[in-house]
């Protein structure tokens, strides 16, 4: 890569991560702009989701997988009811999905995964997730002649259990369980992140465990050790 290109992409990286505010400058005093930085403010995801990344069969598979990982039950909403599919769609549509943060230069040595202790893929997260969902769907077709989303709950769980327990590999040793861990992490993120990211709708995840959310001062509570404080959660945005 040419140096200028490299630097341009570095600028893009800063922008992607929200730290672009002041360019390369020579500072002789505190920068005069003291207002809240626009780039630091997060971008809310509207409920309903844009469906930019997960469409058609991929969206159906993702929804089915997520709802087996966190099902609807007497304790509350399922993952998709809580907005986790919209959440991941928005994540995969931005810099996280593009894996701007990763070092993806080649070569990928054959022994890299063994040395590092986990299965390495050079795909972007977006491509990785789409390919992983396709693999799950194809596996369902092979076993049952139906799409994953059309299986019954027991059949879905059996496939997920195979991935979880490392008994179903995809693209090399350990790749099945890594795919499972990635999907599990993603659904947890959606269910427990601030609702502004599109999941945790109605703060269901926070209410489940009793997490008070985006509060910033517990000085009046620290002395009430061992007590149920009964704190209602609050989000960084007022509606979700």
């Amino acid at each position: 890569m040419k140096r200028r290109d490299a630097l341009r992409s570095m600028g893009a990286l800063f922008a992607a991560a929200g730290l672009a505010k002041v360019g390369a400058v020579e500072l002789k005093s505190v920068p005069p702009q003291t207002g809240l930085n626009r780039e630091m403010l997060p971008s809310p995801v509207m409920s309903g989701g844009q469906g930019n990344v997960f469409k058609g069969q991929a969206r159906a598979t993702l929804t089915a997988v997520f709802d087996r990982l966190i099902p609807h039950d007497e304790l509350g909403a399922s993952a998709s009811e809580a907005g986790c599919v919209d959440y991941l769609d928005a994540q995969m549509n931005g810099p996280y999905g593009e894996s701007k943060d990763l070092y993806l230069d080649r070569p990928l040595r054959a022994d890299e995964s063994a040395l590092m202790g986990l299965t390495i893929s050079l795909r972007t997260r977006r491509d990785y997730t789409l390919a992983g969902l396709l693999f799950i769907d194809n596996h369902a077709q092979k076993l049952h002649g139906r799409a994953f989303a059309e299986l019954d709950g027991e059949q879905m769980d059996a496939i997920l259990r195979q991935l979880d327990e490392g008994r179903l590999d995809w693209e090399g040793a350990g790749s099945g369980s890594r795919l499972f861990e990635f999907l599990l992490l993603s659904v947890r993120e959606g269910y427990f992140a601030d609702p502004l990211y599109g999941g945790n709708r109605g703060m269901v995840g926070w209410k489940l465990v009793g997490f008070p959310g985006a509060r910033y001062d517990y000085r009046q509570y620290i002395d009430r050790r061992g007590q149920d404080l009964g704190l209602e959660p609050i989000s960084l945005i007022p509606v979700s």
């Binding site: 505010k21 427990f192 601030d194 990211y197």
Partner: peptide
Amino acid sequence: ATDTPPAVDPDELR
């Protein structure tokens, strides 16, 4: 104050 105020900081995901 300008980059991680209380409106921005309490965000586990980010």
